[in-house]
Simulated scan of single mutants.
Amino acid sequence: MFDPKKLLDELLGSNIPGTTGTVRDQAGKAVQMAKDNPLAAGALAAVLLGTGAGRQVTGSAVKLGGLAAIGGLAYKAYQNYKAGQQPSVEPVAKEPELLPPPSETPFHPSQAPQGESEFALTLIRAMISAAKADGHIDAEERQKILGRIGLAGLDNDASAFLDKELASPLNLDDLVSQAKTEAQRVELYTASRLAINADTRAERGYLDLLAGRLNLPDSLIDHIEATIQGATVPVAANAADALKSPW
């Protein structure tokens, strides 16, 4: 069985457990290396998104790991919302600071009722569902994606899981039901928003529908949006371009 938490780390470009850097750091920064390995500049999310591009965590967030980074973003947005603050997008600093959610809060990975690994799978499914929202991942695109997933060094079980999820029809009710707490509903939406830029009508419509199913108020969604914008950067353009190249 593959490690869902490690796969989520790779999706977000976070530190890989047992190594000293991120997927893209390990691969190198040269343009040619990015062409040989799209993960070098944009993490596994760029592969899953195919012709699209989402946002990836940066600064201190990449050191937290995927679960803690998503939990930290969701917790920060939720706290600002509960405090009655006005959503505001701060300029992205070179090394934006993001703290992990406090251990005693339901946003901390250890507090997941279904266990950390199972909730990591839910967040991965949320990101894939969001990536499929605009309909561009058809059978041909899926094969193209799977052909590049091997570049991430994933084992057969992880590749098979991604293949199944990419091929499965969107089931929003099932996805929403996997969020067991209010905190997890906020995290599920946060992960979905990280996966896409939401600059198409289909993507924006999907996120609106997801927020409604999760019963998240508009003002909280605004805080999530502002928090994500302040702690992430767009997936690198050269990674997306590499995915489109004919090689």
Rank of each mutant, 00 (worst) to 15 (best):
223 H>K: 14
78 Y>M: 05
189 Y>Q: 14
86 Q>K: 15
55 R>A: 04
119 F>T: 01
142 R>Q: 14
181 T>A: 02
190 T>A: 11
46 A>F: 03
165 E>S: 13
130 A>N: 12
5 K>P: 03
122 T>P: 09
139 A>Q: 08
243 L>C: 04
45 A>Q: 14
231 A>D: 03
119 F>C: 02
209 L>K: 15
38 P>I: 03
4 P>L: 08
5 K>L: 06
50 G>R: 11
105 T>W: 13
94 K>P: 05
143 Q>I: 14
46 A>D: 07
234 P>Q: 00
68 A>V: 00
193 R>Y: 06
234 P>N: 06
128 I>G: 01
76 K>H: 12
140 E>F: 05
77 A>E: 07
91 P>F: 09
137 I>E: 08
55 R>L: 07
15 N>A: 00
210 L>C: 02
5 K>V: 09
240 A>P: 03
33 M>A: 13
166 L>E: 07
104 E>A: 06
188 L>E: 01
14 S>K: 02
102 P>F: 02
12 L>A: 03
238 N>G: 01
106 P>E: 00
15 N>Y: 12
10 E>V: 11
213 R>M: 08
56 Q>C: 02
13 G>Q: 07
117 S>A: 15
179 A>Q: 09
43 A>S: 15
177 S>W: 01
148 R>M: 08
68 A>H: 15
196 I>E: 06
103 S>D: 04
239 A>L: 04
194 L>N: 08
235 V>D: 01
126 A>Y: 11
39 L>M: 03
101 P>D: 05
244 K>P: 03
116 E>R: 05
96 P>T: 00
87 P>T: 08
158 A>V: 03
149 I>R: 06
71 G>T: 01
35 K>H: 07
144 K>W: 14
49 L>S: 14
179 A>S: 12
123 L>T: 07
204 R>C: 05
141 E>H: 10
3 D>T: 10
240 A>W: 02
54 G>M: 08
32 Q>T: 06
87 P>G: 07
183 A>R: 09
54 G>A: 04
183 A>S: 12
55 R>S: 10
173 D>K: 13
66 G>T: 03
47 V>Y: 10
134 D>S: 10
64 L>F: 07
190 T>I: 01
